[in-house]
């Protein structure tokens, strides 16, 4: 039963990602991507990571994709001026598809050659309690460092995206 679920969810994820990647309208792409993330979250639950699944939805689909939507709307691209008006044509897609195909073949071959990859994934379940324990005991330092990193990112984003300084205005500073 679980394996059937896995394959269905996998198909959904792939199709949704493919749609997201090929849309002309970025908002449509974001919606499709959220769909894909939902499927992935369910796959994570199947693999025994319920906490990770929750976070996938909360952080990835809930925060990051929403941020994308905010920025898309903020950029105020007029409909006529939208980048990718035509979208890349088949002339652009074909070489990249070819490259992707070759890479896929290489990866498949590598998987075939590796004897250890045929193992079946066991059923298991990582309880939040165990997860929390591991996170705040074994990886406590990493948690602190990541929190610093989020601070830097916030400061950086604030600085990069600040309003245009008065120097750029024609009036000039008095």
């Amino acid at each position: 039963m679980a394996s059937w679920l896995f394959y269905i969810l996998g198909t959904v994820a792939v199709v949704a990602t493919a749609m997201a990647v090929t849309r002309r309208n970025p908002v449509h792409a974001v919606i499709y991507l959220v769909n894909s993330f939902f499927a992935l979250a369910l796959i994570f639950y199947l693999l025994g990571a319920p906490l990770v699944a929750a976070w996938e939805v909360i952080i990835y689909a809930g925060a990051i994709m929403v941020l994308f939507l905010f920025i898309i709307m903020m950029l105020e691209l007029s409909p006529g001026e939208e980048a990718d008006r035509q979208g890349p044509g088949p002339l652009q897609w074909l070489p990249v598809l070819l490259l992707g195909g070759v890479l896929l073949v290489c990866i498949l071959l590598l998987l075939q050659l590796d004897p250890a990859s045929g193992q079946e994934l066991p059923r298991w379940y990582a309880s939040p309690r165990d997860f929390g324990y591991a996170l705040f005991h074994k990886y406590a330092l990493a948690v602190e460092v990541v929190s610093f990193q989020l601070l830097f990112a916030a400061v950086g984003a604030f600085y990069v995206g600040r309003a245009a300084s008065r120097k750029e205005q024609p009036g000039g500073e008095q």
């Binding site: 490259l99 070759v102 890479l103 290489c106 990866i107 071959l109 590598l110 050659l113």
Partner: peptide, 12 residues
């Protein structure tokens, strides 16, 4: 991407 291809090819 091409570099990635080279690495995979070498591993193969």
């Amino acid at each position: 991407a091409w570099g990635l291809l080279l690495m995979l090819g070498w591993l193969l």
